[in-house]
Computed example of a mutant assay.
Amino acid sequence: MVSMLKTPQGRRIAYHKTDGVGPTVVFLGGLKSDMEGTKAIHLEEWARTRGQAFLRFDYSGHGESSGTFEDGCIGDWHEDTVAAVSALTEGPLVVVGSSMGGWQALLLAKAMPERIVGLVTIAAAPDFTEDSYWAGFDDAQKAALEAVGYVDLPSDYMEPYRITRRMIEDGRKRLVLRTPLSLPFPVWFLQGTEDTAVTSETAIKLIEHADGTDMQLLMVKGKDHRFSDQFCLKLIETKVEAVLKASEVA
């Protein structure tokens, strides 16, 4: 049964928590995804099998949490993440972030570096509101964003995204590739070469920009943004286990 958490901002966040030994593995989903996605459920089953503490949740405006997607922005979802992690977990964390959740994972690493001991990202999409959306808007879209307050963008994976002016403006306050980004713990970045939502260039830019002594990028030929077939799920599982093991001896 889903549980609910009220955040300091008054939002209601739906979550599932699995008790077990630490570090707690926290899954952060992508834009317009929810905690019932294939990767989140697979990792929860993996965690339960090995007795590992695990947390998955829906950002506000996603899944079973309160609010609407169109009213949200990167900063709101960062607040949701900090609230969920602070209230529902204790001790060290290994964070797994998918797509927009990869950006959220990097923001969490900046917000509470003392708690994170490992990181795995899957098609991480840092700064996408600026580098993908805003950079890709034509003059008509920029004008519509100013006049109407939103534009609708097609997606290869679901119904169109409604991107608001607030999301773009808030995203500029949350950029992580323009300032130093310290990741002083074991890190794996996973990326499919056939991903049309997040390019391989983004993955390379991230690993080149971030600062850390145990950081690896794995490009997986032929895999797309979903990264959720059996091969990819096993790969994610393996890399989370590798990060957990590395964190024990660090």
Rank of each mutant, 00 (worst) to 15 (best):
A14G: 13
T68Y: 06
P154R: 11
S228A: 15
H225V: 04
I168K: 04
P92G: 03
M158W: 13
S99C: 15
R165E: 13
R48E: 10
Q216H: 15
G102R: 07
I236T: 09
E36I: 00
R172I: 06
L43C: 08
P92H: 13
L206E: 07
V26H: 04
D71G: 04
A242M: 13
R166M: 10
V148E: 14
H42N: 02
G136Y: 00
G97M: 10
A250W: 02
L43Y: 05
Q230A: 15
A53C: 09
H42K: 04
T38E: 14
Y161P: 01
A123K: 01
S98G: 13
I41E: 09
R115E: 09
R162E: 08
F231P: 00
E64D: 15
G136A: 00
T81L: 13
L108Y: 01
V151Q: 09
W103F: 02
H78M: 15
A197M: 12
E241V: 08
K173D: 11
G10L: 09
M4L: 14
G192Y: 02
H42V: 01
I13K: 07
M167N: 02
F54T: 04
H209I: 03
Q104M: 15
T213W: 03
E45D: 12
K234G: 06
R115G: 07
L181M: 07
W46I: 00
H62L: 03
P180N: 08
T38A: 14
T238V: 01
R12V: 12
A250L: 13
I204W: 00
E36A: 06
R11Q: 14
P160G: 05
K110L: 05
D76R: 04
S132R: 10
G97N: 11
D80K: 10
E248S: 12
H209K: 10
W77Y: 05
Y15C: 12
P92C: 04
T238N: 12
R48N: 02
